[in-house]
Nucleic acid binder design. Structure first.
Length: 136
DNA sequence: GCCAACGTTGGC
DNA sequence: GCCAACGTTGGC
């Protein structure tokens, strides 16, 4: 099972919104690299839900409930979307500053290509971030 | 097919 | 609000 990190601006769509809605279509991705990651997602894969712009922290975990399909918001039909549902909020959010300060996370994809709205998380990175959130 | 201009994202 | 990163577009 693969792990991911998905970014969302909380003022547009926050983790609380996801919990309220029960699930959401993760669309609007207009980047080829991010689209490749979306296509690689399998039902059951878990993803950290990260708040960009405001908050700058991982606040919860989401689960893929529907694999890549044509993005209904893309009239050209070039890009795909997935559907995700909330799993649980982290006990303690993990901030970007915390992640940057941890040498174990120095190679994270999200630092290499910080503009991507979706990026993979290695198993060791996943565990390290969970530990930082006070979960084991 | 190259490359400059432009647009978007997101941290600071 | 600024700026760096970087993908995309369009003229040649």
């Amino acid at each position: 099972m693969a792990h991911w990190l998905m970014k969302s601006e909380p003022e547009t769509f926050s983790y609380e919104d996801l919990v309220r809605d029960g699930k959401t279509v993760w669309d609007g991705v207009r980047n080829n690299q991010a689209a490749l990651y979306l296509k690689a997602m399998k039902v059951g894969d878990e993803a950290f839900f990260y708040h960009s712009q405001k908050g700058l922290e991982v606040v919860g975990i989401a689960r893929v409930v529907r694999e890549a399909f044509l993005d209904p918001s893309d009239p050209a039909g070039r890009f795909v979307a997935v559907e995700v549902a909330p799993v649980r909020a982290l006990k303690q959010p993990v901030t970007l500053a915390q992640m940057k300060a941890d040498p174990k996370l120095a190679d994270m994809k999200m630092f290499k290509q910080f503009r991507l709205s979706v990026c993979p998380v290695e198993p060791a990175e996943w565990k390290a971030i969970l530990a930082m959130a006070g979960e084991t």
